[in-house]
Design a protein around this nucleic acid. Structure first.
Lengths: 339, 339
DNA sequence: CAATTCTGCTTCATCGATTGAGCAAGCTTG
DNA sequence: CAAGCTTGCTCAATCGATGAAGCAGAATTG
């Protein structure tokens, strides 16, 4: 792939030459601090017009190289295939731009090696700050970044070496489980344990959600058997397989389930439809994450929606305020009313 | 937001000093063309090790400034809130990395001004190439880019000044409409026109889909009334409002609909549920775009899934082969079998 | 009116990596 | 053993923007 056969781009030197002035005057005018440098409004107007005419575009590489701060802010994100991460990215970009920062986002597919590689790439591009969203191993990323003097904020999954902004996973899971238990009892008249499906047993969010799940059961005086907690990973196929194995093992399937993310729900729903196990009556479901079409799937599904705007407000508050404090900010998720 | 109080980053000069050699040797070694420059394997090994120990990271800004190609590839994309654009971005990033290109993606929220601003920013970052996905006015972007000698490829929506890769919108819409018409006739025994909802009347995709929609009706000998084509925009609220207005105008609502994108479907479904107009029997729906949960909404919905992998293959084929030819590549979408 | 201040610029070093040109020491060849 | 080649480096210019320091000339001040 070559650059089109094109005249070289216009630089401040070209403009200076055309205007019969110096490059530094042009630079000062175009980057807006010409008043501080006592350039006449007249010259400023002339150069601005000229730059416009010549289609001048700043060379960020040169600019960033020279400056102290790059004004580039990076984010790594696991996937783009669900509304939660999609809105995180969209909101992040908007808020970065509001602050005159250039956002660079990259998706790491939940792959630890890619996460590190992506972080390294961001450092090479001189990001001023990096947001590690849902990172498998946030602390290693922070270590890498802090060696380069770059601040990090963990989002969605917490780490121990940088401030973190996460959902109140315990609280959300507790409330969600309560609701599903109530729904089950109302419809089926039984007080029996739910199934937990999806997520990684090792990640903080999942373990907190399991804790909330257990707490809600405990409250209701229901015992949860170990093999009803299937933290099999997030991918739809993994959730589907976990369900199949459970059924094949001859376990009596619960009348309700807690599904850890829409992405796992995709697999769970697929299995329910394919296996026909729940042909008689759909189980009551609770999903930790929101999706508009899941909401339309029927009134047997409750959802918890993570509060992305508040989470990103918290992230930028940390960034804007230069806090280095190792706090973990927990944002309560929103329990969507069913239907 | 300041840089943490940190030692300056290690540069090739630091490494050169530590190793008692020159910066240019270090540079050649670390960027891999030390063989061309006749550097001994011994020194190469020593420097590589040292760089590792010192946590050296290339300064891309300096590197790109000096080189004539940046190896940065940009993409602008309208939204991250649906599976179609999500998978485009994910696939794009993966394919860019395979080619040793650094992907920069930015979301422009279907806002023409933001599109131009984003394109300008990408030029400042010296992108070698820009993919304009679903751009409102691709030709203006191309114009801007080509003035800077940067190649552009249009994706999803075609333009007249750069090669474009789009879905076969006419073909997909034709087939989708046929299916919905068949479904309606089978269930309701009537040959009546469908409703078309969503999209912008001015965009190429929408007008091609409307053309396919009309062609399928023509085939079946069904007349389509002008006011059954509601190209009201993509946003859910717009689709919902359009439905409401249609109903309020006293129009007899069709038994089937062609919905132009999942995002419009969100609004349509919401209206259907809220208004209760279809309480007796759900209408048959066809949706141009795919979503896993929409697929689970019931067997009254048919979907057309745009073939993202093939589309991006085509995009990179154009980029890799340096074609400047103004062709429009049409990729047939996949008609998902119902259920 | 000499001394000072202000205005409106210009000059030049710098950021870090890259690369063409050059150079010294060792090796080959006739 | 002189001429030429090879090996393994170093030197210095360069990419484009930035900003501290400097410098004329005009304006102000005591």
């Amino acid at each position: 792939m070559k650059r089109a056969t094109q005249a070289k781009r216009t630089t401040i030197y070209d403009l200076a030459e055309l205007a019969g002035t110096s490059a530094s005057a042009v630079s000062a005018i175009l980057n807006g601090n010409w008043k501080k440098r006592r350039i006449s409004a007249q010259l400023a107007a002339r150069i601005t017009k000229l730059a416009e005419e010549q289609g001048y575009a700043l060379n960020m590489q040169a600019s960033v190289l020279r400056r102290e701060r790059s004004k580039i802010i990076g984010m790594i994100v696991p996937k783009y295939d669900n509304r939660y991460f999609g809105s995180i990215v969209e909101q992040f970009e908007a808020m970065a731009r509001e602050r005159d920062l250039f956002p660079i986002v990259t998706c790491t597919r939940r792959d630890p090696a890619l996460e590190m590689e992506a972080a390294r790439a961001m450092l090479s591009y001189q990001v001023d700050c990096l947001i590690a969203t849902g990172a498998t191993d946030p602390d290693r990323i922070v270590e890498l970044c802090s060696a380069a003097g770059v601040r990090t904020v963990n989002l969605d999954l917490p780490g121990s070496r940088a401030p973190s902004v996460i959902s109140d996973n315990f609280g959300g899971a507790l409330e969600l489980t309560r609701r599903v238990l109530t729904n089950c009892e109302r419809e089926f008249g039984v007080k029996s344990p739910l199934l937990f499906v999806g997520g990684r047993g090792t990640d903080h969010n999942t373990s907190e959600r399991v804790r909330g799940f257990r707490a809600a059961h405990a409250e209701a005086g229901i015992r949860v058997d170990e093999d009803l907690v299937l933290t099999c990973g997030y991918a739809p196929e993994k959730a589907e397989n976990a369900m199949r194995q459970l059924a094949e093992a001859g376990t009596v399937l619960p009348r309700g389930m807690f599904v850890n993310s829409t992405i796992s729900l995709e697999g769970v729903m697929r299995w329910i439809r394919r296996s026909g196990e729940y042909a008689a009556a759909m189980p009551h479901l609770g999903c930790f994450d929101w999706d508009p079409f899941v909401a339309m799937l029927g009134d047997h599904i409750e959802m918890v929606r993570q509060d992305v705007p508040k989470m990103l407000d918290a992230v930028f508050e940390i960034i804007d305020s230069d806090t280095l404090e190792l706090k973990v900010v927990q944002i309560p998720p929103i329990v969507e009313t069913a239907g």
